[in-house]
Design a protein around this nucleic acid. Structure first.
Length: 468
RNA sequence: GGUGAGGUGGCAGAGUGGCUAUGCGUUCGCCUGCAAAGCGAAUCUAUAGGGGUUCAAAUCCCUUCCUCACCUCCA
């Protein structure tokens, strides 16, 4: 089945062409501070999208930029009395630390704005030549009135924007809506340009880098909803004025994360850094949380919601260990029926993702599978044979969702098995104190024991910060 | 003011005309030496207010109220 994604520009779902390479440009972060849960959501959504497309056999080319030249960076550098580069290096490292922990696969390319100044200058030159840009006292500006379709993405009327009067007042611009392509400045960081020394505007970097690496008409351009205006609107104006053809085929925008129903912002002081949420909840729960609502809608970060997710995650862990520790001590029945169930759940999972990337439904299908397996285990019916049939489906879904149960080494495994044997001996001799001592010893290794009728199941549980 | 998205059981969250998902929570039970986890059963009977269309509406139309986001940098 073809995958469909909602396109902000045409306000309709569009087919994603997976027959050739799927080129995706994702607006990344400005590296002047720690990343937060809002960034995490957008990036996890795209990571999951990428994993899904790849599982369908598509070749994905994912490019995600770093904005490493910006007023915020310069201000921060001033404040710390250091170079902008020191700041950006620190937070790029910080970015990878965070997102590696969140089990986000590396993009194919992470271009930095500062390494593409020449591309931007060439782009601006082209816009100048075609009459879309002009110089003024403060910089080079894009002339919005020259681009007739301006406002088509954000559905804004140009005259309403003007009368809104919230646009910055700058007497040197021909039109208040015009935005900077190049800002004159002699203050570091600064680069030479045909028009004067300075630094690029924010919007031009994404146009330049996406055109360079993905061409003038690629499959998906993404980012947070808050980038629709003005960032993506301006990118369209620049890119389409330059190339003369339509820019991205699909504009995919991810909803915001709120905190207890409120917008998350620095000024309110309610941002949750990735470092913070990782310590509190761990990667799997954060990923499940980020995928728990449809990507177009806002999701709310609240401890109660996250706590629920812990319960769900424990079920997944339980399920995983039930499967890998199952044996063939019993007859296997109903294997055909089980295969049918798996196929049903797999198509439920795929249909959900194919229809505008409905991760909440897909996660639901995954949990149905987990429940199914746990039910079999609970009724002592989960044999090795059945596990062998179910495990690949479980693995496939977890890997698309980017979930990772904690694995154990063979050494650990042997150690645990031996300890359990000892404990069983004590138990059969009704030496419960000794048995409990061993359980304590095992639990110190983060291993939880579950006594079934004829055997003891063990599992390594992820440590969840908030539970301690 | 403009634009967009919403208002569903204690909470979360599906469902675009008809048999009212699902999850969490709660209660009881199974299992266990105990525990934990898991499983089972029960519980809750909801669709912002008011009109209308229809044999039938959470679902369509009108209207009122409310919430949120974006309109300035923002994922």
């Amino acid at each position: 089945m073809k995958m469909r994604i909602f396109d902000t520009l045409s306000v309709s779902e569009k087919d994603v062409d997976t027959s050739s390479s799927v080129r995706i440009y994702l607006c990344g972060v400005t590296v002047y501070d720690e990343s937060h849960i809002g960034h995490a959501r957008t990036i996890i959504v795209f990571d999951t999208l990428r994993r899904y497309l790849e599982s369908k056999g598509a070749k994905v080319n994912l490019v995600q930029n770093f904005t490493d030249v910006d007023d915020k960076i310069i201000n921060r550098a001033k404040k710390e009395n250091t170079l902008a580069e020191t700041i950006t290096t620190r937070y790029i490292k910080n970015y990878f630390d965070d997102f590696d922990k969140l089990n986000v696969k590396r993009a194919d390319l992470y271009p930095k704005a500062t390494e593409h100044i020449t591309d931007m200058i060439n782009l601006i030159k082209g816009l100048m030549d075609k009459g879309f840009a002009y110089t003024s006292k403060n910089g080079v500006y894009f002339s919005v009135s020259k681009f007739k379709e301006y406002g088509k993405l954000s559905k804004k009327k140009i005259d309403e924007l003007v009368s809104g009067a919230r646009v910055e007042v700058d007497e040197t611009k021909k039109d208040p809506l015009d935005f900077a392509l190049w800002k004159f400045s002699d203050e570091s960081p600064t680069w030479e340009s045909p028009w004067g020394n300075g630094r690029p505007g924010w919007h031009i970097e994404c146009s330049a880098m996406s055109l360079k690496y993905l061409g003038s008409n690629f499959e998906i351009h993404g980012g947070g909803r808050d980038l629709i205006f003005p960032h993506h609107e301006n990118e369209i104006a620049q890119s389409e004025s330059f190339s003369g053809i339509n820019f991205a085929k699909i504009w995919m925008h991810v909803g915001m994360v709120t905190i207890n129903g409120e917008k998350m912002s620095k000024s309110l002081g309610n941002t949750k850094s990735i470092d913070h949420v990782l310590k509190k909840w761990g990667p799997n729960i954060i990923r499940l949380f980020c995928l728990s609502g449809h990507y177009t809608k806002p999701i709310d970060y609240s401890e109660d919601t996250l706590k629920e997710t812990i319960t769900k995650w424990r079920q997944v862990e339980n399920c995983y260990y039930e499967m890998i520790l199952s044996d063939d001590s019993k007859e296997t029945e109903e294997i055909d029926q089980i295969k049918d169930t798996i196929h049903e759940l797999q198509s439920e999972f795929e249909n959900a993702l194919d229809s505008d990337f409905d991760t909440p439904l897909a996660v639901g299908a995954f949990f149905k599978l987990v429940k199914n397996i746990n039910q079999l285990a609970s009724s002592e019916k989960l044999t090795k044979k059945i596990s062998d049939v179910m495990f690949p489906a479980f693995q496939e879904m977890s890997s698309i969702l980017g979930l990772n149960t904690i694995h154990v080494t063979d050494d650990e495994k042997n150690k645990i098995t031996n300890l359990i044997k000892q404990r069983d001996t004590f138990r059969s001799e009704k030496k419960f104190q000794e048995a409990d001592a061993i359980r304590k010893q095992i639990s110190d290794m983060n291993i939880v024991l579950i006594d079934h009728k004829n055997k003891t199941l063990w599992m390594k549980q992820e440590k969840i910060g908030i539970e301690n």
